[in-house]
Amino acid sequence: MRLLQELDIFVRTADNGSLSATARALDLTPAATSAALKRLEGELGVQLFVRSTRTMRLTREGEQYLAQCRPALEVLQQASRDLLTGNQAFQGVVRLSAPSDFGRNLLLPWLDAFQDRHPLVEFRLQLTDRMANIYSDPVDVAFRYGEPPDSNLVAVPVATGIHRVLCASPGYLASHDMPQTPYDLSAHRCLCYMFGDDVHDRWRFAREDGETLTVRVKPANVSNDGDAVRRWALAGKGIAYKAWFDVADDLAAGRLRALCTAWTAEASPLYMVVAGRSQLTPLLRGLRDFVAERVERLVARY
């Protein structure tokens, strides 16, 4: 099991370029993580990282090893989880609901990967930005941003510490002044999400010095589909206020730019919601863990 931990430390450090971040994620000391990497390098007889005072980058040998190590580690970790849960073969139908952006662009390929591991699992997926009624709708589980207003529901955290992002395309910014603070949004076209009859036009921010701010924007375009709002932003139609997951790839690729970064937008944690604890079957727990692992990789990548 020591080798499995060393491989996990290696892959995590390669993803985030930081020993300290890996140590925090695994609840280890930086010294312990560093020692584990040195043991692995000693066992392999090669140097995997080039180290500096602030960053770590893979050597050529490290890149080659990572390409083969990552899939092997996933198989070993899944085998360990299967033994612990006694569910070597998950099976059954899972009826789930997810927001349009997250569901279409992230969750859908993750479900495909989960199904590749567990081919006896079938999914019935609803993509909707409306919060499914777990009690009456044909849904077993819903992935949602933020805790549900119904306190009787059970919300299992999948990703915390995630916030919304104020963003726009380079094309839009080329023809409009860059907003320096959220106060400047009054002079811009804003792309808003609509829930039912309510337009989400109050955008909230906070600063490190403790100052908080709620800005009521004037909507230019409005949709009840979060993916439509994102597509408008990509097309240069205005500024959007999106959950980070929904635009992470766009930001990394430069298709969108984050704005007013001295301010932090409101929190947007991701939860898996079920009707009660008894609904958390081993299959749903396994799915939650699988999605949480994919989320962790996405966060580490950026």
Rank of each mutant, 00 (worst) to 15 (best):
N221Q: 15
D116F: 09
D112A: 06
G171I: 02
A21L: 09
K242W: 02
L213H: 10
Q68E: 14
L73R: 10
Y271S: 02
Q78Y: 04
L127T: 05
A89W: 06
S97T: 12
V299Q: 04
T85N: 10
A72S: 10
N152R: 15
V141W: 07
F90H: 15
L106C: 08
I162L: 13
D198L: 12
R230A: 02
I134H: 07
P71C: 02
G171C: 01
Q64T: 14
D249R: 14
S169E: 08
W232V: 01
A32W: 02
P170V: 13
V50C: 04
L66E: 05
P179M: 11
G226K: 02
S80L: 14
F245M: 11
Q115S: 15
G236W: 08
R144N: 06
L7K: 05
V215Y: 09
C192S: 02
P149V: 09
V139M: 09
P170I: 09
F90K: 08
A262F: 03
A25K: 09
Q180N: 13
A267N: 07
F205P: 00
E122V: 14
R95T: 07
A72C: 06
L3Q: 11
Y135T: 14
V93S: 07
L111W: 03
A174Q: 09
Q77W: 01
T85Q: 08
F290S: 13
A89E: 15
L173V: 05
V139Y: 02
D209S: 10
L153H: 04
A258G: 01
E61L: 11
N224I: 00
T13R: 03
D101I: 01
A243G: 11
N152S: 06
